[in-house]
Every structure is written in structure tokens, then in C-alpha cells.
Computed example of a mutant assay.
Amino acid sequence: MRHLLALAIKFVMVTAVLLLVLTVGFDVPFVDTLLISLALTALSYAMGDIMIFLNAGSPENQSTRNTVATFVDFVMAFLTIWLIGWLLTGQNFEMVTPALLSALVISGGEWFFHLYVDRSVVPEYNNYKAVKR
């Protein structure tokens, strides 16, 4: 259940950023933005938040793990937004700027999302006291 809530939070964060940058700022169709959001949320949660963030260093060294995972999330977000945006819109070079802007904002949010994952989704990893539900 904690993972489902984390996925929902991440989807809302990613979708809000992409709607503002892609749809409002660069006229990418709404449906295309939602498809990119779904793909990016699933990919970055599985790879960036679970695989890389939890395994990029020792549990005690949260700052290093967060830095590595945030950088990987930036690269993954840029490539995913650019590639899927290109495939959906047919615009190759026109998608570079919105993908870069989106990836920068999303990776900023990812820094704080990793803190949430560490404390509330997998508290046993760092021996945090589990959040009472």
C-alpha cells in the first residue's frame, strides 16, 4: 500500500510539471502529456527510486544515494520525455528544450521525493520507525 501511495504522489508531481511545461508552454497535446507522465512515473519509480536510490550506497549515507538517484532521474526523465515526445508528436529537435526544462524541474522534486521514500515507503531500510497508519 505504501508503494501505491508513493506511485500516486509521483504521478501527480510528474503530471503537474509536464502539463505546465509541455502542454501549456509548448502546446503538446494533453493526451500525449498524460502518456509521457505514465511512462516516466513507472520507469523512474522502478529504476530511480527503488533500484538505484536504495542501492547507490550504504543505508546510512542517504545524501550520496539521493545525489546519485537524482542525477539518474534527471537523465532518465530527459531521455524519456524527449523520446516518447518525439514518437508521439513527430517533433525531434523541438522536444529537446521542453524535455530539458521538464527534467530539471522533475529532478528537483525527486530530491524531496527520495526523502519521502526513505522515511515513509521503506523505513526499515534505514531503521526509521515506521509511520503509524
Rank of each mutant, 00 (worst) to 15 (best):
I36W: 05
V122N: 07
F30N: 12
V14K: 02
V31N: 05
L88M: 07
L20V: 11
L35I: 06
L115N: 12
A16Y: 07
A16I: 15
L35N: 00
T41K: 04
D73K: 04
S37Y: 04
V24S: 13
T67V: 11
T80V: 13
P59K: 10
V75S: 09
T64D: 10
L35K: 01
A103N: 00
R119I: 04
L18F: 02
T64N: 12
M47V: 14
V14M: 04
S44I: 05
I81F: 03
W82F: 14
D49F: 08
V131I: 13
A103D: 00
Y116A: 07
L35Q: 02
V122Q: 07
I50S: 09
L115H: 13
V28K: 03
W86I: 02
V117F: 15
F71G: 14
T97G: 00
T67M: 13
L79P: 00
M1A: 14
V72R: 01
N92E: 13
N66W: 00
L43R: 08
V28L: 05
L54F: 09
A77G: 01
S37A: 15
Y125M: 10
T23S: 15
I106G: 06
T89E: 01
F26L: 11
L54Q: 15
V122A: 07
K129G: 02
D27P: 11
S37R: 04
K10V: 08
H3N: 12
T89S: 03
V72C: 05
R133T: 10
I36N: 02
S58T: 15
V12L: 10
V24E: 12
T97P: 00
D27I: 05
G109C: 08
Y45A: 13
T80F: 09
F53N: 00
I50M: 12
S102P: 07
V24H: 14
A99K: 00
H114Y: 03
I52C: 04
L100K: 09
D32G: 04
D27E: 13
H114C: 00
V131D: 11
G25L: 10
S107T: 11
F71R: 06
F26A: 12
P59T: 10
P29A: 13
I52H: 01
F78T: 07
S107F: 05
W86Q: 04
S63H: 09
L38T: 06
M13D: 08
I36C: 05
A16L: 15
K132S: 10
G108L: 08
V96Q: 04
L19T: 09
T70Q: 02
T80D: 08
M51K: 07
W82N: 02
Q62D: 09
A42I: 12
D49L: 06
E94S: 10
L87W: 05
T64M: 14
G85C: 02
V31M: 11
S120G: 02
V105A: 08
T80N: 09
K10E: 08
D32F: 08
E124I: 07
W86T: 12
W111E: 01
A103L: 03
T67G: 12
L18R: 00
M13K: 09
Y128N: 08
W86L: 08
S102G: 15
G90P: 06
T97L: 09
G48I: 06
A39Y: 03
L5Q: 05
V75I: 13
F74V: 02
A130G: 01
I36G: 01
V14W: 02
T33W: 06
N127S: 14
T33H: 04
E60C: 06
